Amino acid sequence: METLFDHALIDMHRLRALKGEPADFLLDVVARELAERLSVIDRRFERAVELHGHTGAAARAIAETGKVDALERIESDERFAAPGQGLTVSPLETVPLAPQSANLIVSPLALHLTNDTPGVFVQIRRALKPDGLFLAAIPGSGTLQELREVLLAAESEMTGGASPRVMPFPDVRDIGALLQRGGFALPVTDKESYTVRYDSIFPLMKDLRAMGMANPLVGRSRRPLARGVLLRAAELYAERFSDPDGRIRATFSIIYVSGWAPHESQQKPLKPGSATMRLADALKQGSEK
Protein backbone atom coordinates (compact mmCIF):
# COMPACT_ATOMS: atom_id res chain seq x y z
CA MET A 1 0.00 0.00 0.00
CA GLU A 2 1.39 3.39 -1.02
CA THR A 3 1.61 5.97 1.75
CA LEU A 4 0.42 9.27 0.30
CA PHE A 5 -0.41 11.21 3.44
CA ASP A 6 1.68 12.10 6.48
CA HIS A 7 -0.74 11.49 9.35
CA ALA A 8 1.48 13.07 11.99
CA LEU A 9 1.53 16.23 9.88
CA ILE A 10 -2.24 16.07 9.38
CA ASP A 11 -2.76 15.94 13.15
CA MET A 12 -0.42 18.89 13.59
CA HIS A 13 -2.29 20.91 10.94
CA ARG A 14 -5.71 20.10 12.41
CA LEU A 15 -4.67 20.86 15.98
CA ARG A 16 -3.04 24.12 14.93
CA ALA A 17 -6.27 25.09 13.17
CA LEU A 18 -8.20 24.70 16.45
CA LYS A 19 -5.96 27.24 18.18
CA GLY A 20 -6.09 30.02 15.63
CA GLU A 21 -8.81 32.15 14.11
CA PRO A 22 -11.38 29.61 12.91
CA ALA A 23 -12.35 29.06 9.27
CA ASP A 24 -15.02 26.43 9.82
CA PHE A 25 -17.47 27.45 7.08
CA LEU A 26 -16.99 24.33 4.95
CA LEU A 27 -17.26 21.93 7.87
CA ASP A 28 -20.35 23.78 9.09
CA VAL A 29 -22.00 23.55 5.65
CA VAL A 30 -21.23 19.83 5.47
CA ALA A 31 -22.52 19.27 9.02
CA ARG A 32 -25.85 20.90 8.17
CA GLU A 33 -26.16 18.91 4.95
CA LEU A 34 -25.46 15.59 6.66
CA ALA A 35 -27.98 16.44 9.39
CA GLU A 36 -30.62 17.32 6.79
CA ARG A 37 -30.08 14.02 5.01
CA LEU A 38 -30.42 12.18 8.29
CA SER A 39 -33.55 14.07 9.29
CA VAL A 40 -35.58 12.71 6.35
CA ILE A 41 -34.92 9.09 7.35
CA ASP A 42 -37.88 7.73 9.26
CA ARG A 43 -36.13 5.95 12.11
CA ARG A 44 -34.14 6.48 15.28
CA PHE A 45 -30.54 5.45 15.84
CA GLU A 46 -29.62 4.13 19.26
CA ARG A 47 -25.86 4.59 19.03
CA ALA A 48 -24.32 7.15 16.67
CA VAL A 49 -20.62 7.84 16.16
CA GLU A 50 -18.89 10.84 14.59
CA LEU A 51 -15.62 9.66 13.06
CA HIS A 52 -12.79 12.24 13.02
CA GLY A 53 -15.03 15.28 12.73
CA HIS A 54 -12.38 17.83 13.80
CA THR A 55 -14.51 20.53 15.45
CA GLY A 56 -17.48 18.30 16.33
CA ALA A 57 -19.80 20.39 14.16
CA ALA A 58 -21.32 17.31 12.53
CA ALA A 59 -21.90 15.65 15.91
CA ARG A 60 -23.72 18.73 17.17
CA ALA A 61 -25.86 19.05 14.04
CA ILE A 62 -26.81 15.37 14.15
CA ALA A 63 -27.69 15.55 17.84
CA GLU A 64 -30.01 18.47 17.06
CA THR A 65 -32.05 16.32 14.63
CA GLY A 66 -33.41 14.32 17.56
CA LYS A 67 -32.79 11.13 15.57
CA VAL A 68 -30.13 9.64 17.86
CA ASP A 69 -30.30 8.35 21.43
CA ALA A 70 -26.56 8.43 22.19
CA LEU A 71 -23.73 10.04 20.23
CA GLU A 72 -19.99 9.72 20.71
CA ARG A 73 -16.95 11.17 18.98
CA ILE A 74 -13.76 9.46 17.80
CA GLU A 75 -10.71 11.63 17.16
CA SER A 76 -6.98 11.24 16.67
CA ASP A 77 -6.09 13.36 19.71
CA GLU A 78 -7.86 14.12 22.98
CA ARG A 79 -7.29 17.83 22.38
CA PHE A 80 -10.11 17.77 19.82
CA ALA A 81 -12.61 17.31 22.67
CA ALA A 82 -14.75 20.24 23.72
CA PRO A 83 -14.41 21.38 27.36
CA GLY A 84 -16.04 18.79 29.61
CA GLN A 85 -16.61 16.43 26.71
CA GLY A 86 -15.07 12.99 26.36
CA LEU A 87 -14.04 11.23 23.20
CA THR A 88 -12.30 8.07 22.06
CA VAL A 89 -8.78 8.56 20.70
CA SER A 90 -7.88 6.59 17.59
CA PRO A 91 -5.78 7.21 14.44
CA LEU A 92 -7.41 8.30 11.20
CA GLU A 93 -7.28 4.83 9.68
CA THR A 94 -8.61 2.91 12.68
CA VAL A 95 -12.29 2.49 13.63
CA PRO A 96 -12.10 1.38 17.29
CA LEU A 97 -15.61 -0.08 17.47
CA ALA A 98 -16.69 -3.64 18.17
CA PRO A 99 -18.32 -5.50 15.28
CA GLN A 100 -22.01 -4.66 14.84
CA SER A 101 -21.98 -2.14 17.69
CA ALA A 102 -23.17 1.13 16.10
CA ASN A 103 -26.39 2.09 14.32
CA LEU A 104 -25.01 5.22 12.64
CA ILE A 105 -21.47 6.29 11.70
CA VAL A 106 -20.81 9.74 10.25
CA SER A 107 -17.53 10.91 8.71
CA PRO A 108 -17.27 14.62 7.80
CA LEU A 109 -14.28 15.69 5.67
CA ALA A 110 -11.75 13.08 6.84
CA LEU A 111 -11.79 10.03 4.57
CA HIS A 112 -9.85 11.77 1.79
CA LEU A 113 -6.86 11.74 4.17
CA THR A 114 -6.65 7.98 4.65
CA ASN A 115 -3.94 5.94 2.94
CA ASP A 116 -5.95 2.69 3.11
CA THR A 117 -9.40 4.05 2.31
CA PRO A 118 -10.82 0.64 1.22
CA GLY A 119 -9.75 -0.80 4.57
CA VAL A 120 -11.42 2.02 6.50
CA PHE A 121 -14.67 1.50 4.57
CA VAL A 122 -14.59 -2.20 5.51
CA GLN A 123 -13.96 -1.33 9.17
CA ILE A 124 -16.93 1.05 9.17
CA ARG A 125 -19.26 -1.54 7.62
CA ARG A 126 -18.17 -4.18 10.13
CA ALA A 127 -18.80 -1.79 13.03
CA LEU A 128 -22.39 -1.16 11.93
CA LYS A 129 -25.25 -3.26 13.18
CA PRO A 130 -27.33 -4.90 10.42
CA ASP A 131 -29.34 -2.14 8.72
CA GLY A 132 -27.03 0.49 10.25
CA LEU A 133 -26.29 3.63 8.26
CA PHE A 134 -23.01 5.19 7.11
CA LEU A 135 -23.00 8.86 6.08
CA ALA A 136 -19.94 10.74 4.89
CA ALA A 137 -18.82 13.92 3.19
CA ILE A 138 -15.57 13.64 1.24
CA PRO A 139 -13.81 16.41 -0.71
CA GLY A 140 -13.71 15.18 -4.30
CA SER A 141 -12.10 15.92 -7.63
CA GLY A 142 -12.57 19.54 -8.59
CA THR A 143 -11.79 20.77 -5.09
CA LEU A 144 -9.24 23.60 -5.22
CA GLN A 145 -8.73 22.95 -8.93
CA GLU A 146 -8.04 26.65 -9.54
CA LEU A 147 -5.34 26.80 -6.87
CA ARG A 148 -3.74 23.59 -8.12
CA GLU A 149 -3.56 24.95 -11.68
CA VAL A 150 -2.03 28.32 -10.88
CA LEU A 151 0.53 27.00 -8.38
CA LEU A 152 1.69 24.40 -10.88
CA ALA A 153 1.87 26.95 -13.68
CA ALA A 154 3.66 29.60 -11.62
CA GLU A 155 6.25 27.24 -10.14
CA SER A 156 6.96 25.65 -13.54
CA GLU A 157 7.35 29.07 -15.15
CA MET A 158 9.58 30.52 -12.44
CA THR A 159 11.76 27.52 -11.55
CA GLY A 160 11.50 25.10 -14.48
CA GLY A 161 9.89 22.40 -12.30
CA ALA A 162 7.04 21.88 -9.87
CA SER A 163 6.18 19.90 -6.73
CA PRO A 164 2.64 18.86 -5.76
CA ARG A 165 1.27 21.71 -3.63
CA VAL A 166 -2.39 20.60 -3.48
CA MET A 167 -3.35 17.07 -2.49
CA PRO A 168 -5.24 14.79 -4.91
CA PHE A 169 -8.95 14.26 -4.32
CA PRO A 170 -11.02 11.19 -5.28
CA ASP A 171 -13.56 10.94 -8.08
CA VAL A 172 -17.20 10.29 -7.21
CA ARG A 173 -17.12 7.02 -9.18
CA ASP A 174 -14.15 5.81 -7.14
CA ILE A 175 -16.05 6.45 -3.91
CA GLY A 176 -19.09 4.58 -5.24
CA ALA A 177 -16.85 1.62 -6.09
CA LEU A 178 -15.37 1.70 -2.58
CA LEU A 179 -18.87 1.50 -1.06
CA GLN A 180 -19.63 -1.61 -3.08
CA ARG A 181 -16.22 -3.13 -2.39
CA GLY A 182 -16.71 -2.48 1.33
CA GLY A 183 -19.90 -4.53 1.35
CA PHE A 184 -22.46 -1.73 1.79
CA ALA A 185 -26.02 -2.20 0.63
CA LEU A 186 -28.04 0.46 -1.22
CA PRO A 187 -24.96 2.68 -1.86
CA VAL A 188 -25.60 6.26 -2.97
CA THR A 189 -23.13 9.00 -3.93
CA ASP A 190 -23.72 12.50 -5.20
CA LYS A 191 -21.63 15.64 -5.44
CA GLU A 192 -22.27 19.26 -4.52
CA SER A 193 -19.89 22.07 -5.48
CA TYR A 194 -19.50 25.19 -3.38
CA THR A 195 -17.81 28.36 -4.64
CA VAL A 196 -16.09 30.67 -2.17
CA ARG A 197 -14.82 34.07 -3.28
CA TYR A 198 -11.72 35.87 -2.06
CA ASP A 199 -9.95 39.16 -2.67
CA SER A 200 -6.82 37.27 -3.73
CA ILE A 201 -4.94 33.98 -3.39
CA PHE A 202 -3.45 35.01 -0.05
CA PRO A 203 -6.61 34.99 2.12
CA LEU A 204 -7.56 31.70 0.42
CA MET A 205 -4.29 30.09 1.50
CA LYS A 206 -4.71 31.57 4.98
CA ASP A 207 -8.16 29.97 5.21
CA LEU A 208 -6.81 26.60 4.10
CA ARG A 209 -4.29 26.68 6.94
CA ALA A 210 -7.04 27.73 9.36
CA MET A 211 -9.12 24.76 8.15
CA GLY A 212 -6.23 22.32 8.72
CA MET A 213 -6.06 21.73 4.95
CA ALA A 214 -2.40 22.55 4.36
CA ASN A 215 -0.51 20.13 2.11
CA PRO A 216 -0.06 16.77 3.93
CA LEU A 217 1.54 14.77 1.12
CA VAL A 218 4.49 12.58 2.03
CA GLY A 219 6.03 13.49 -1.35
CA ARG A 220 5.62 17.25 -0.88
CA SER A 221 8.54 19.62 -1.29
CA ARG A 222 10.02 20.64 2.07
CA ARG A 223 10.94 24.02 0.60
CA PRO A 224 8.24 26.69 0.89
CA LEU A 225 7.26 28.50 -2.27
CA ALA A 226 9.39 31.54 -2.97
CA ARG A 227 7.66 34.90 -2.73
CA GLY A 228 8.12 35.49 -6.44
CA VAL A 229 6.33 32.24 -7.26
CA LEU A 230 3.44 33.14 -4.96
CA LEU A 231 3.12 36.59 -6.51
CA ARG A 232 3.08 35.06 -10.00
CA ALA A 233 0.46 32.52 -8.86
CA ALA A 234 -1.66 35.40 -7.55
CA GLU A 235 -1.42 37.11 -10.95
CA LEU A 236 -2.42 33.93 -12.80
CA TYR A 237 -5.31 33.31 -10.42
CA ALA A 238 -6.65 36.83 -11.00
CA GLU A 239 -6.27 36.41 -14.77
CA ARG A 240 -7.95 33.00 -15.03
CA PHE A 241 -10.47 32.72 -12.21
CA SER A 242 -11.74 36.17 -11.25
CA ASP A 243 -15.23 37.65 -11.48
CA PRO A 244 -16.00 41.08 -12.98
CA ASP A 245 -15.59 42.66 -9.54
CA GLY A 246 -12.01 41.36 -9.35
CA ARG A 247 -12.59 38.72 -6.68
CA ILE A 248 -11.31 35.20 -7.32
CA ARG A 249 -13.22 31.90 -7.05
CA ALA A 250 -12.26 28.78 -5.12
CA THR A 251 -14.19 25.55 -5.67
CA PHE A 252 -14.89 22.90 -3.04
CA SER A 253 -16.57 19.80 -4.51
CA ILE A 254 -18.00 17.56 -1.79
CA ILE A 255 -19.04 13.95 -2.40
CA TYR A 256 -21.92 12.93 -0.13
CA VAL A 257 -22.06 9.22 0.64
CA SER A 258 -24.61 6.89 2.18
CA GLY A 259 -24.59 3.13 2.55
CA TRP A 260 -26.27 0.57 4.78
CA ALA A 261 -24.97 -2.51 6.51
CA PRO A 262 -26.78 -5.41 4.81
CA HIS A 263 -30.02 -6.69 6.34
CA GLU A 264 -32.63 -9.14 5.08
CA SER A 265 -35.37 -6.50 5.20
CA GLN A 266 -33.67 -4.29 2.58
CA GLN A 267 -34.76 -4.11 -1.03
CA LYS A 268 -32.80 -6.37 -3.37
CA PRO A 269 -32.50 -6.25 -7.14
CA LEU A 270 -34.58 -8.77 -9.07
CA LYS A 271 -32.81 -11.80 -10.42
CA PRO A 272 -32.31 -11.83 -14.20
CA GLY A 273 -35.34 -13.30 -15.92
CA SER A 274 -37.69 -12.79 -12.95
CA ALA A 275 -39.62 -9.82 -14.39
CA THR A 276 -43.33 -10.45 -14.94
CA MET A 277 -43.73 -7.80 -17.67
CA ARG A 278 -41.73 -7.18 -20.80
CA LEU A 279 -39.93 -3.81 -20.95
CA ALA A 280 -41.73 -2.91 -24.18
CA ASP A 281 -45.11 -3.50 -22.52
CA ALA A 282 -44.12 -1.37 -19.51
CA LEU A 283 -42.99 1.49 -21.76
CA LYS A 284 -46.24 1.22 -23.76
CA GLN A 285 -48.35 1.40 -20.61
CA GLY A 286 -46.38 4.41 -19.40
CA SER A 287 -46.95 6.28 -22.66
CA GLU A 288 -50.70 5.68 -22.50
CA LYS A 289 -51.12 7.33 -19.06
Rank of each mutant, 00 (worst) to 15 (best):
T117V: 13
P224G: 11
A280V: 12
P118M: 08
G119K: 13
G219S: 09
L26I: 10
G273W: 01
Q285P: 01
Q85V: 15
V29W: 14
S253D: 10
D199F: 13
G56A: 02
S163Q: 14
T117A: 10
T94M: 10
E64S: 15
Q285N: 13
A137Q: 00
A154N: 09
V257K: 04
Q123H: 09
E239Q: 08
E78H: 08
R47P: 01
R148M: 11
L38P: 02
L87T: 07
G20I: 05
V29N: 09
I105F: 00
A177M: 15
L279V: 08
D207M: 06
L231E: 07
L151H: 02
D171H: 10
D24P: 03
D281T: 12
L87V: 04
I74E: 00
K206G: 06
V229M: 05
L225C: 07
N115E: 12
V218F: 07
S221Q: 13
D116H: 06
P269A: 13
R181W: 10
D24N: 14
D245H: 15
V95D: 02
M167N: 05
E192P: 01
R14H: 05
K268W: 07
A61S: 14
T159I: 13
K289A: 13
L87E: 03
S39Y: 04
G182V: 05
S76K: 06
R126P: 00
M1L: 05
G161P: 01
D199M: 13
L283I: 07
L225D: 09
G176V: 03
I254R: 08
D207E: 15
L71K: 07
G142P: 08
P170D: 06
H54E: 05
D190P: 00
H263F: 09
A154C: 10
R173F: 12
D207L: 04
P139L: 10
A23L: 04
T159R: 15
A234R: 05
A127V: 03
P262N: 10
G212C: 06
A250Y: 03
D243A: 09
L208P: 04
A153L: 10
Y256W: 11
A59D: 01
A82L: 15
R73F: 04
I62P: 01
P22C: 13
Q285A: 14
G160P: 05
A110W: 13
I124E: 00
M211V: 03
K191W: 00
P130Q: 10
V218K: 12
I74R: 01
A261P: 03
H7F: 05
F80I: 15
G228L: 11
H13K: 13
R220M: 04
P187R: 11
P187V: 11
T251L: 01
A226K: 12
Y256E: 11
G219T: 10
E149Y: 02
I175H: 07
K129W: 01
L279D: 15
G132S: 05
M167G: 01
I255G: 06
T55C: 02
S193M: 05
S221N: 14
R79Q: 07
S193P: 02
A280D: 12
L217P: 03
F252I: 09
E192R: 13
